[in-house]
């Protein structure tokens, strides 16, 4: 779901960059220095998770798990996912440099929104209930990311409309898998370390 350099029109690229700077600033404001170790280690976890390939039929997909990142990190998911994208672009050559802002917004904004909307539900009730809400959040985050990618392409020009639609439909299985995985991850975390999703000094980040 990385967009590359040169594909998008200038207004989309610049708009994405401005929005990304805003999101990163907002995330860093919610991240006192005491929480930097936790955010850094979690950012690294999501980076490693994105290297995991999960089989689907004859093919495989790599995980994004931005919904889960939002549930655990809240606003701090924005800079955390941005750092992941930056490292991927610089060291792996995924995506591009000028589109870093657009890519960050497409992946991190859904993460933050899902985190804000679903975190209370994920932390409440039985682990099973939390897992179901987590799964819904995980699926929605990927759906929103896919829509955002499609929108970035569609805003650039009509010639990308078909590609934008195909991107969305091709990612429906990914949404299902991300939903299932996020649900299962929440289930385990709720059982082993429930405070991961609660705003306490020892637990989650806001």
């Amino acid at each position: 779901m990385h967009i590359v350099d040169g594909a998008l029109s200038n207004p989309v690229v610049i708009g994405g960059a401005v929005a990304a700077v805003g999101g990163i600033a907002m995330g860093l404001r919610n991240l006192p220095l005491e929480r930097i170790p936790a955010a850094g280690v979690l950012s690294a976890s999501f980076f490693v998770a994105s290297l995991i390939h999960v089989p689907i039929g004859p093919s495989s997909v790599h995980l994004i798990l931005n919904g889960l990142a939002g549930l655990v990190l809240g606003w701090a998911a924005f800079p955390a996912l941005f750092v992941g994208l930056l490292l991927q672009a610089v060291f792996f050559g995924f995506g591009g440099l000028t589109v870093l802002g657009v890519n960050a917004v497409n992946i991190a904004l859904p993460a933050v929104l899902v985190g804000l909307a679903f975190r209370p539900m994920v932390a409440r009730g039985s682990p099973m209930q939390g897992a179901i809400w987590g799964g819904i959040g995980g699926g929605l985050a990927i759906a929103a990311t896919t829509l955002a990618v499609a929108l970035s392409l569609a805003l650039t020009g009509d010639e990308f409309l078909l590609a934008a639609k195909l991107v969305f439909f091709a990612h429906i299985p990914v949404m299902v898998i991300e939903a299932l995985l996020t649900g299962a991850a929440v289930m385990l975390a709720r059982r082993v370390k429930p405070e991961l999703f609660i705003n306490t000094p020892a637990g989650g980040l806001s």
Partner: peptide, 21 residues
């Protein structure tokens, strides 16, 4: 498979959090 991978990711997060503490 999906449940196991989910647990794997969940376990990684839990351990990461404890490591950061």
């Amino acid at each position: 498979t999906y449940r196991s991978f989910g647990y794997l990711v969940g376990m990684m997060l839990v351990r990461a959090m404890e490591r950061s503490e």
